[in-house]
Computed example of a mutant assay.
Amino acid sequence: MSTGKVSGFTLILVVIALLALAADALARTSRFNVEQAQTREQAGQILMSANIGFDFSEPVLEALDHGVPLTLVVHVQVRRTKAWMWEDSLVDEQWRYAIRYRPLSERYEVYRLPGSEGRDFVTRDAAIRALGELTDQTLISRARLDPDADYELQIKVFLDIEELPLPLRPMAYLTPSWKLSSGWTKWPLNH
């Protein structure tokens, strides 16, 4: 009788440990990370530069290597620091970028949407690195900022499943390895 209680208890511990390991493995595999963001003023405009780390899952990389273009969205907001939830953002924009593999030329291409012309890369890793390097993107006119207020830059990056080819979308909606996002990060806006 006590053996059954011990085995049931042991089974529960094993299940909890396996669930914890699975959750940890899922959290570590395929995340996007806004590693750095900074702003500077130039000619009356506030410019942003950022480095984003893309850790794509294996199914996403496999699709890319088979010619499926991936659309990444960089959602950017400029808000007053400690703003109330219902306060409007001064900037609320979504910048769209794409990465694709061109099998005939054996090159990867990174470009900003709308458009289809971009920079070519020989390796996938070089293209992914370039995708994560945002340099001097115009955010807002300096004149729109109150000099006595503090502002913050909020950034979220995610894979846009809606832009995948139609046959891939159901699998992407149902599979965690396709739901890639950085979550929101906050950075001080220097002005």
Rank of each mutant, 00 (worst) to 15 (best):
M85I: 11
E87R: 09
D88E: 13
D88C: 07
S89G: 08
S89Y: 06
V91D: 03
V91R: 06
V91N: 04
V91M: 08
D92V: 00
E93Y: 11
E93G: 04
Q94I: 03
Q94W: 07
Q94T: 10
R96L: 11
R96D: 02
Y97G: 00
Y97L: 12
Y97W: 10
A98P: 01
A98Q: 15
A98G: 15
I99A: 05
I99H: 06
I99N: 04
I99D: 01
I99S: 05
I99T: 09
I99W: 06
R100F: 00
R100Q: 08
R100Y: 01
Y101D: 00
R102Q: 12
R102F: 12
R102L: 13
R102Y: 06
P103L: 08
P103N: 04
P103I: 05
L104T: 07
S105D: 14
S105Y: 00
S105Q: 12
E106R: 13
E106G: 07
R107G: 04
R107W: 05
Y108Q: 04
E109S: 03
E109L: 12
V110E: 02
V110L: 03
Y111R: 07
Y111W: 14
Y111G: 03
Y111T: 04
Y111F: 15
R112H: 10
R112E: 14
L113T: 08
L113S: 03
L113D: 07
P114G: 06
P114F: 08
G115Y: 09
S116F: 13
S116Y: 15
E117P: 00
E117L: 12
G118A: 09
R119D: 12
D120M: 13
D120S: 14
D120N: 13
F121H: 02
F121V: 00
F121S: 01
V122M: 09
V122C: 02
T123R: 12
R124C: 01
R124I: 00
R124M: 06
D125P: 00
D125N: 11
D125L: 10
D125M: 03
A126E: 15
A127P: 03
A127L: 05
R129K: 13
R129Q: 13
A130H: 11
L131Q: 05
E133R: 14
L134C: 02
L134G: 04
T135N: 13
D136L: 06
D136P: 01
Q137K: 10
Q137T: 12
T138F: 07
L139D: 00
L139H: 07
A143V: 10
A143P: 04
R144K: 13
L145D: 00
L145M: 04
D146A: 07
D148C: 01
D148S: 13
D148A: 14
A149T: 09
A149E: 14
A149V: 01
A149R: 14
D150M: 07
D150G: 11
Y151W: 10
Y151L: 01
Y151S: 03
E152C: 08
E152A: 09
Q154H: 14
Q154I: 07
Q154T: 05
I155L: 15
I155E: 03
K156F: 09
K156H: 11
K156I: 04
V157K: 02
V157D: 09
V157A: 06
F158S: 11
L159E: 02
D160C: 01
D160R: 15
I161G: 06
E162N: 15
E162A: 14
E162C: 01
E163N: 10
E163K: 15
E163T: 14
E163Q: 15
L164I: 06
L164W: 00
P165D: 08
P165N: 08
L166R: 15
L166H: 09
L168M: 13
L168A: 06
L168R: 02
